[in-house]
Simulated scan of single mutants.
Amino acid sequence: VPHASAKEDSYKGYYIPKGAIVFGNSWSVVAMLHDPATYPDPEEFRPSRFLTSDGVLDPAVPDPEVTFGFGRHLCPGRFMALESMWITMACILAMFNIERTKGDDGRFLSMPEELFASGI
């Protein structure tokens, strides 16, 4: 969402006059969440990266809340979104047995790759 600067300013040597239209850099959010120094192997889906060896949340790993924006204009629905996801996961885990399927020989079957897709 574009904004107008309230007063003149400078940022890293760039002059920003009062009233200039400025945009938050949404790509910086993606870059922050893909920083290998913070999240090793950022392209891999590994929820365990947020846990200690004991299985509790690791306080040293930053919470990826930047997905909800930054500054004064954080998403007002972020708490509802997080709580909705939590209650949905709690209900799924309470109602279903989530496990891999075993074949006739008793060995676990692997999932066919065509079932996975990237994107929404």
Rank of each mutant, 00 (worst) to 15 (best):
R49C: 01
P47Q: 03
E8C: 00
V29H: 03
G19L: 04
E83I: 09
A90K: 11
S10E: 15
E113L: 13
S48E: 15
E114V: 09
C91V: 06
R72Q: 09
P47D: 04
K12G: 04
G77S: 06
V22C: 15
D35A: 08
T67F: 02
Y11Q: 06
K7W: 02
S84I: 01
E113N: 14
I87A: 09
V56L: 08
S5H: 05
L109V: 11
S110L: 13
V1I: 11
T88Q: 06
P59F: 09
D63G: 00
I21S: 08
E114D: 14
A4W: 13
M80D: 00
V1C: 09
L109W: 04
A20Y: 05
K102R: 15
E44L: 07
Y11E: 09
G119P: 00
R46W: 03
F116V: 09
E114Y: 13
P112Q: 10
Y15M: 06
P62D: 06
T52P: 03
S10Y: 12
M32W: 04
H73C: 07
S118Q: 03
G24E: 08
G77Y: 01
T101Q: 12
K7R: 14
S10I: 05
P76D: 05
A6I: 11
I16G: 03
V22T: 14
V30G: 04
K12C: 12
E83Y: 11
D41N: 14
L93F: 11
A37Q: 14
A37C: 06
E65V: 07
L82P: 00
S53V: 04
L33E: 01
S84M: 07
A81I: 05
E99G: 11
Y11G: 02
L57K: 12
S53N: 06
I21N: 07
V66H: 04
S110Y: 11
A37S: 12
G19V: 04
P64A: 08
R46N: 10
Y11H: 15
Y14H: 15
T101R: 13
S48R: 05
M85F: 12
G103E: 07
M85L: 15
G71A: 06
I92V: 15
L51R: 00
A81W: 02
L33Y: 01
G55Q: 01
M95H: 13
M85A: 10
L51G: 01
V30L: 09
S10H: 13
R46K: 13
R78P: 00
E83H: 11
V1K: 12
T52V: 03
Y14D: 05
K7A: 15
S118F: 07
K102L: 14
C75E: 04
G71T: 07
A20W: 08
F108S: 12
W27I: 03
H73G: 03
C91Y: 05
W86Y: 14
E83L: 10
M95I: 07
S110P: 04
I87L: 14
G24L: 07
D41M: 03
E65T: 11
G103S: 13
S110G: 08
D105W: 10
